Simulated assay, not measured.
Amino acid sequence: MSLRGTTAIVGVADIHHPRGKAPVGERELVLQAILEACADAGISPRDIDGFTSYAGGDNSGPVLAADLGVRELRWSSMVWGGGGGGAAAAIGAAAAAVATGQAECVVAFRGMSQRETGRLGYAKYYFDNNYLPHGVATPAHVCALRTQRMLEHDGVPRSAMRNLVLAAYQHAQNNPGAAGYGKPLDEAGYDASPFIVEPFHLFDCSRENDGAVALIVVSAERARALGRPAAYVLGAAQGAPGGYSAQNENDEPYTSAGFADSSSGTGVASRLWAQARVKPAEVDVVQVYENFSGPAVASLIDHGLCPPGPAAAEVMTLENLTAPGGSLPVNTSGGNIADSFVNGMGLAVEAVRQIRGTSTNQVDRADTSLFIGGPMAPLVSSVLLGSEQTL
């Protein structure tokens, strides 16, 4: 059985506020996002019979089902591990549930209100006594170690990181909802910003927001019957190479973002391409989770979208990375860095917008749209979306 073309995303919602400024709590934000996504899909909230999410949280399927008055709850799941690495996996889980008949209408969601739950980045998830006594207490510390190795040992040029950030800010100038809207960034401004954790400057780091995101997944047949623009799931994969663990910090593919196993040629990215029957060169637009710019560059390399080492400079130019005419347009809403950060799930909504043709930085004839979940985490994931022309 393959997921390819059996399910589709038919409704989306992306709500975000500055950190600590949300007018309501996390549960209310999630419910608001689900209701907006249902309205976008043209379905009743009572039709929802499944929920998927990731990175923990108290807003479980049974609780939300009761709040929404669903007729019957048939599916409720949470992706384990990896924080934002599970973002695309939550969509994959929703698609798997629908494709196998376990549910008919599943919402993949994520909500955040750090005033209630505490700061997301500090000593969460996999940080334990292997890390904390040595001053390693945030994702920035872990990803900085791996990124510095990528720059020094692999020879990936620092310009690759800088241009990814500049592309995000350039896209944000056309997106009135982006946090970076009206705040253009140039190379001098990037270079002058302070280091947070070397090699990450301030602008290499993702934003923090309160908010909620929801995506409605149904069967391809139901999507066509609804008559709304749909983004079809061509493939979805999650996991990590054997031995890859942020706790160990000694795995062989140390500079990998976790999507590729260099020793065997397998891994999340390879499984995604095989399932979707799409080659990396056939991808029209990419939304890549940038907890920090370095892991995002590593993700593009892992997926075969960018060559490793010094040759990365040839692809990772500002011209190539920006829509509409770039050869590899990336993070066309502004991404986590210049738009908003609800644990990365807003990137999935932008991936859908590109297929629908409604992005503020629309890529010409975007028939394939890739969403890459949080890199350099203990678990990572990707999902490839396509237009009906790809089926």
Rank of each mutant, 00 (worst) to 15 (best):
R4V: 01
A8D: 06
V10G: 02
V12P: 04
P18Y: 13
G20P: 03
P23V: 06
E26Q: 15
E36A: 11
A37S: 10
A39H: 13
S44M: 11
P45E: 07
R46V: 02
D47E: 15
G50L: 01
A65L: 07
A66Y: 12
L68N: 04
G69S: 08
E72W: 01
R74C: 04
S76E: 05
S77P: 01
W80Q: 14
W80L: 14
W80R: 15
G83A: 10
A87M: 09
I91R: 09
I91E: 05
A95H: 05
A96M: 15
A97K: 10
Q102H: 14
V107R: 05
R110A: 04
R110F: 01
S113C: 15
Q114M: 14
R119G: 11
R119M: 15
L120I: 13
G121S: 14
G121W: 15
K124N: 15
F127A: 05
F127S: 13
D128P: 11
N130F: 12
L132R: 10
P133D: 07
P139E: 12
L145Q: 08
E152I: 14
V156N: 02
Q173A: 06
Q173F: 09
G180P: 04
G182A: 07
K183W: 06
P184W: 15
L185C: 05
D186P: 03
D186M: 07
Y190L: 05
D191A: 12
S193L: 07
D204G: 08
S206T: 13
E208G: 00
E208W: 07
A220E: 00
L226S: 02
G227S: 10
R228T: 09
R228C: 01
A231K: 08
V233Q: 01
A237T: 08
G239A: 08
A240W: 00
P241V: 12
G243V: 13
S245G: 10
S245A: 11
Q247A: 13
Q247M: 12
S256R: 02
S256Q: 05
F259P: 01
S263M: 09
S264T: 15
G265L: 01
G265Q: 07
A269S: 08
Q275W: 01
Q275F: 00
V278H: 06
K279V: 01
P280F: 06
A281M: 00
A281Y: 00
V285R: 03
V288M: 09
Y289F: 08
S293N: 02
G294F: 02
A296K: 07
L305N: 02
C306H: 09
A312S: 09
A313G: 06
E319C: 00
E319M: 00
E319Y: 00
T322N: 03
T322R: 04
S327G: 11
L328K: 08
N331F: 03
T332V: 10
S333V: 00
D339T: 00
V342H: 08
G344R: 09
G344E: 03
L347G: 05
V349T: 03
R353G: 00
I355E: 01
R356V: 03
T358S: 11
T358F: 11
S359Y: 11
T360V: 13
Q362D: 06
D364Y: 13
R365Q: 08
S369R: 03
F371I: 04
G373E: 02
G374K: 12
A377M: 14
S382W: 03
E388V: 10
Q389H: 14
T390D: 12
